[in-house]
Simulated scan of single mutants.
Amino acid sequence: MHRLPDLPGRTAIPVEHFNTAPAEEIRHLLLACLRSAHWAARIADHRPYPDADALLAAADEAAYDLTWADLADALANESLPALPADTYSAAHTALSAARAAYEARFGHVFVICLDGVAPEESLDRVLEAIRSRLTNDPEEERAITAEQLRRLARGRLVRALKGTGRCRYAAPPRGATSR
């Protein structure tokens, strides 16, 4: 039996395995990429995909078609990416304050895709983005949030397909803190 990767250290999932694995296992994998049952079902139900590019295009299209209610469900399970272990406590305080201000203004968690950002730059990038996005009107921020969720889902799916190991942005279990 082919085991789909759902833990750190996972192996690659060729598209052929993605196409033939049981739907429930694929939905589980997809929900680890974006916690939207609608998104996961749409991608799983449209198998088979001729190649990884077609799968990623379908994932993007499904993300673009999500309603705000679908996005809100996905946001409920997201958290900020973990900061590097050597980040000083004042940075955690600044990030917590910025995150609280964002959540108070928009009513949902702040999300950002940091694919391609060096770990030592992640804190600055997150703080800069939160501060910048706090000035957005709610409709503009919804569009940016939807795009960030789409990018997060795509990056997570790419990492699952490539089997590069740990998914940097996997949401922790509800109630867990991100540090």
Results as ranks from 00 to 15, higher is better:
residue 117 V to I: 15
residue 160 A to K: 10
residue 9 G to P: 03
residue 67 T to N: 03
residue 121 E to N: 15
residue 130 I to P: 06
residue 108 H to C: 08
residue 2 H to N: 13
residue 151 R to D: 08
residue 49 Y to Q: 06
residue 82 A to W: 07
residue 118 A to I: 02
residue 74 A to G: 01
residue 64 Y to C: 14
residue 134 L to H: 01
residue 125 R to L: 08
residue 108 H to I: 04
residue 19 N to A: 04
residue 142 R to I: 02
residue 71 L to V: 11
residue 164 T to K: 10
residue 170 A to F: 06
residue 44 A to F: 07
residue 53 D to G: 13
residue 94 A to W: 10
residue 159 R to V: 05
residue 104 A to K: 11
residue 146 A to D: 02
residue 122 S to G: 10
residue 178 S to D: 08
residue 149 L to W: 00
residue 148 Q to Y: 00
residue 95 L to N: 06
residue 64 Y to A: 14
residue 64 Y to N: 13
residue 12 A to S: 11
residue 40 A to T: 03
residue 73 D to W: 07
residue 62 A to C: 08
residue 79 S to C: 11
residue 170 A to E: 12
residue 54 A to H: 14
residue 11 T to F: 12
residue 50 P to D: 11
residue 72 A to L: 14
residue 48 P to L: 06
residue 82 A to H: 11
residue 9 G to K: 07
residue 64 Y to P: 00
residue 16 E to F: 01
residue 32 A to F: 04
residue 113 C to A: 11
residue 80 L to M: 06
residue 74 A to V: 04
residue 140 E to Q: 15
residue 107 G to N: 05
residue 151 R to L: 15
residue 51 D to I: 08
residue 39 W to A: 00
residue 166 R to G: 00
residue 133 R to C: 02
residue 177 T to C: 11
residue 156 R to T: 08
residue 43 I to G: 03
residue 80 L to Q: 01
residue 17 H to C: 12
residue 21 A to Y: 04
residue 133 R to M: 06
residue 77 N to E: 14
residue 92 H to P: 00
residue 107 G to Q: 01
residue 7 L to P: 00
residue 176 A to C: 12
residue 156 R to G: 07
residue 34 L to R: 08
residue 172 P to E: 11
residue 108 H to V: 01
residue 82 A to E: 15
residue 7 L to N: 10
residue 96 S to K: 15
residue 132 S to D: 13
residue 114 L to M: 07
residue 92 H to L: 11
residue 94 A to F: 06
residue 72 A to I: 11
residue 45 D to N: 12
residue 111 V to A: 07
residue 162 K to G: 14
residue 32 A to E: 05
residue 91 A to L: 10
residue 54 A to Y: 05
residue 48 P to V: 04
residue 14 P to L: 01
residue 145 T to V: 07
